[in-house]
Simulated scan of single mutants.
Amino acid sequence: MNTSIGPIYQVIVKDLSEQITSGALKPGDRLESEPRLAQQYGVSRMTLRQALGELETAGLVARRHGAGTFVSRPVPIQRRGNQLGAFHEEMGLEPDEIETELMLQEVIMPPDDVSQDLQLSPGQTTSHLVRLRKLHGTPVAWQESWIPYLLAPALARGGLTDGSLYKTLRERGGVEIRSAEQTVSAALASPEVASVLKIDQENPVMSIRRVSRTAAGEPVEVAQSYTSSDLPLIVRLER
């Protein structure tokens, strides 16, 4: 066999990985027995076990003693409602797993309910931002935020630091968000939300309205987000 394509066990890893990610092998499916797989690939049992071990380490398969090797069921991504921070932190993910697309950045007069929550005086404007969050390239959340313009004028120009509004507020405006109250409800996707999230119109989405505050309790941001129903919200309760 021509080994220029790499170690033999890696060829097996690549082939089985592609079958799993393509859906040819589905979660819960049992792989062929080790003797049959070894015969199929023309390798020793030791080489095959090396490949299966790597797949298991990657979380793609699970080996059960006496039963065989099975395709793992994916662990669902969950957004935690008791964690206040950057979007990737709430999701328990690495920063590079979330892509933030800044769709709109402007200075406007806010809606009346937003002005009331931000305790603005008549005529006060806000920085208005609309962002689309993507997980591994797939749109998962549409977010709209209003921040008092005078609090951080720099928000009206330039992008966001590492795609994070909270980090931008901290570094450019010296504003640290320390608490928030949010209301979570189910809603039907509007045509705009359905379009950006690439879901069918009128599909259910999770609506989250948040008012964020400084340590002194001063309101900093009103945010409205619509999140795909594929991302359940997990809230930890203790007694």
Rank of each mutant, 00 (worst) to 15 (best):
R30I: 10
P27E: 03
R73F: 11
S115V: 02
L104A: 11
M46Q: 12
P35V: 07
V114D: 14
A51R: 09
F70W: 15
S72D: 06
K14D: 12
I147F: 01
A141I: 13
S17Y: 11
D96E: 08
A67K: 14
S115F: 08
E56H: 11
E101Q: 09
P148D: 15
V107A: 06
A62I: 14
E144S: 05
W142N: 04
R79Q: 08
Q143Y: 00
T47E: 11
S72H: 03
V130Q: 09
G85M: 09
T57K: 13
Q50Y: 00
G85I: 15
G137F: 07
L52P: 02
A86Y: 00
E18D: 14
M109F: 15
L48S: 11
H65F: 02
H128F: 12
L16S: 02
W142T: 01
V107T: 09
A67F: 15
F87L: 02
A24V: 14
E94Q: 12
G28L: 05
M109D: 00
S33I: 10
V75Q: 10
S44K: 07
G66Y: 10
E144K: 05
Q143P: 04
L118P: 00
M46T: 14
S44I: 06
E144R: 03
R131K: 08
G42F: 03
T126V: 15
R64L: 13
V61Y: 10
Q39C: 00
Q83I: 13
E56A: 09
P95F: 00
D96A: 03
G59K: 09
V107E: 04
V130R: 09
W142Y: 06
S44A: 13
V140H: 12
A24E: 06
E99C: 01
L84K: 03
I20N: 02
T126K: 12
D15T: 14
E106T: 11
T47L: 13
L104N: 13
Q40N: 08
P35M: 00
S145H: 02
L135A: 13
D15K: 12
I77P: 00
D15S: 07
E18F: 00
H128D: 05
G66A: 15
G85H: 08
A86T: 11
R80S: 07
D29T: 04
P74V: 07
L37D: 09
A141Q: 06
V75Y: 01
L120Q: 10
S22W: 02
E106Q: 03
L48N: 13
Q40D: 11
G81N: 02
L132A: 05
Q10S: 10
P148I: 07
E99S: 03
L120N: 13
V107D: 05
T57M: 10
A141P: 00
G85K: 10
W142L: 10
G81D: 11
R73W: 05
G81S: 05
D113V: 01
D96Y: 14
T100H: 02
Q78V: 14
H88W: 14
I77Y: 09
S115W: 09
Q40L: 07
G66F: 07
R73C: 01
V11S: 04
G85S: 03
G23W: 03
P95R: 00
H65G: 06
V140T: 08
M103S: 08
M109G: 09
L55F: 11
M109I: 01
